Lab assay of single mutants.
Amino acid sequence: MKGKVVSYLAAKKYGFIQGDDGESYFLHFSELLDKKDEGKLVKGSMVHFDPTPTPKGLAAKAISLPLE
């Protein structure tokens, strides 16, 4: 699924993505496929991810940034 980063707290390594389906997904650095892309996780960045339901809500897994 595609989505847009709505927040990312680099110090805490987490944030949120708004998916194309309108839902909010929890984003964690550990799910970023290329850790070098962390600096690109800023508000408004477009990402691809696997939407995954968890006991705490919806989460983004296997997060990647589109090729530039």
Rank of each mutant, 00 (worst) to 15 (best):
M1Q: 06
M1L: 09
M1I: 10
K2W: 13
K2Y: 12
K2H: 13
G3L: 01
G3E: 00
K4M: 12
K4C: 13
V5N: 01
V6F: 07
V6A: 09
S7Q: 11
Y8T: 02
Y8F: 04
L9N: 15
L9Q: 12
L9W: 15
A10W: 11
A11L: 10
A11Q: 11
K12L: 11
K12P: 03
K12Y: 11
K12D: 06
K13C: 08
Y14I: 06
Y14Q: 05
Y14T: 05
Y14V: 05
Y14W: 12
Y14R: 05
G15I: 03
G15L: 03
G15D: 00
I17V: 07
I17D: 00
Q18A: 11
Q18I: 14
Q18T: 10
G19R: 00
G19M: 01
G19V: 03
G19H: 01
D20R: 05
D21A: 04
D21I: 02
G22K: 05
G22A: 04
G22N: 07
G22E: 04
G22C: 08
G22Y: 04
E23N: 15
E23T: 07
S24R: 14
S24A: 09
S24T: 15
Y25Q: 00
Y25E: 00
Y25G: 00
F26M: 05
F26K: 03
F26L: 06
F26D: 02
F26S: 03
F26N: 02
L27K: 00
L27V: 05
L27Q: 00
L27T: 02
L27C: 03
L27D: 00
H28Q: 07
F29M: 06
F29D: 03
S30A: 09
S30H: 08
E31L: 04
E31Q: 12
L32D: 00
L32M: 05
L33Q: 09
L33M: 10
D34P: 03
K35H: 09
K35V: 08
K35L: 07
D37R: 05
E38R: 05
E38W: 07
G39T: 13
G39I: 14
G39P: 14
K40D: 04
K40Q: 07
L41E: 01
L41D: 01
V42M: 11
K43S: 10
K43D: 05
G44V: 02
G44T: 03
S45Q: 15
S45W: 05
M46W: 12
D50P: 00
D50G: 06
D50V: 15
P51H: 04
P51E: 02
T52G: 07
T52I: 13
T54W: 06
T54D: 05
T54H: 08
P55W: 09
P55T: 10
K56W: 13
G57K: 03
G57T: 03
L58A: 06
L58C: 08
L58D: 03
A60C: 03
A60V: 02
A60H: 01
K61W: 07
K61S: 09
A62T: 07
A62C: 12
A62F: 10
I63H: 01
I63N: 02
S64A: 09
S64D: 05
L65V: 14
L65D: 02
P66N: 13
L67S: 13
L67D: 13
E68K: 10
E68L: 12
